[in-house]
Design a protein around this nucleic acid. Structure first.
Lengths: 206, 206
DNA sequence: TATTTTATACCAACTGGTTTGTTTATTTTT
DNA sequence: AAAAATAAACAAACCAGTTGGTATAAAATA
């Protein structure tokens, strides 16, 4: 029975994420991480063979959580689908509003944005990993929106791709602004506007 | 006729901005900047007494441009004001749509976001400088929206503050996403949705 | 008008400290 | 015994910042 090194690895990942979100990746030294975790260099390099391998593990860990939130919201709203596609789309957004509604501090940030703001530091495989995760959000929303368009024959033309992108755009943008103005409820309010926009766009004209 | 050191200083600022937007501030070494400009250490420290003074000069330079774009859009739409406040608001947004419409590459990014993603590295005065600049955007939009609300007695309640924040939120968010998916027209499309939302929200119910 | 002085703008080499990563030997835990 | 860590020393590269000095042009002076 091996000693559980996964616990240590997870602690490194958790503290690193928090440091990277506040300082950026380059400004987060391995010594900083060791300070926070109380570990030694040997322990760190036992679990990650380089700092860039940590970068990879960090983003994969983060994206895993991210996509699992997406899937949870899909699952929770799955039953609405057949009956009313618009109601399902709106409830899907509402899941994230609820999620962001009772924060007492501004959200800690998004690792995609952190990495993209220092994008030259990372190799192509990390960059394309982020790209594909964000495209998965687009794809998912496009599907939900597509269902709405099918049910209601829209007279006006709708660009479902850019409409789908709005969720991630508003998440990312509201993280930036809420950091700047230090307002915890900003993200929830911005998402509510998105929900409202979808509603106005689709509900009025049938 | 003095030798013009301002030209050199401006070159340092321009190359630094471009490097910081791609690599982040911490990962941009002074040697990197010297490489790009062809200058030497002595020249750099003649113009900036430390790297953190460069950080300050960079963000002030950037914010100056930013606010001047805002004022240009205000000026261009100033005549519409009295007649139709909604038309003025929509035209104000349109100015930025036009600005972002004919880019052949994704926008290079926003220094506010760059700094906020490495926020712990900067002193309080830089952080509060960014805050006040973003609050100036909020204030300006709130004024434009306030004029609309005055002209049309809205039946529904409208949170003009969060409505005002949407412009910066969408700018920031679309910069992040357009970097990820490498689409040059993404920002213009997202801003068009914002314009559309304002229109739907205010035009229908008088 | 010729000469000296001064301030500006810049260069080249160097210093002290930090960073990532390695190595080796030892200890603890299961 | 295998896995998970500690401890401490070390190297190679890099980094911010310093120092001492140079070129140039404008201004002051003789």
């Amino acid at each position: 029975m091996p000693k559980d090194g996964q616990l240590t690895k997870d602690r490194i990942l958790a503290e690193s994420r928090s440091l990277v979100l506040k300082n950026g990746f380059a400004a987060t030294s391995i010594d900083n991480i060791l300070e926070k975790t109380g570990l030694t260099k040997g322990a760190f390099f036992y679990h990650f063979k380089s700092k860039s391998e940590l970068a990879k593990a960090l983003i994969e860990d983060f994206a895993g959580e991210d996509i699992s939130y997406m899937n949870k919201a899909l699952d929770k709203t799955a039953t609405i689908n057949e009956k009313d596609a618009l109601e399902r789309l709106l409830q899907f957004i509402q899941e994230f509003i609820d999620m962001m509604a009772d924060l007492s501090d501004p959200p800690p940030g998004c690792l995609y944005a952190s990495y993209l703001n220092e994008t030259n530091q990372f190799d192509e495989d990390i960059r394309s990993y982020i790209t594909s995760t964000i495209l998965l959000w687009r794809q998912t929303l496009e599907l939900l929106i597509g269902n709405v368009l099918e049910q209601r024959k829209m007279s006006i033309e709708v660009d479902s791709k850019s409409l789908a992108d709005m969720l991630v755009v508003i998440f990312e943008g509201s993280y930036v602004v809420s950091k700047a103005v230090n307002e915890a409820d900003l993200t929830a309010k911005q998402l509510t506007h998105l929900k409202n926009y979808y509603q106005l766009l689709f509900k009025e004209k049938k």
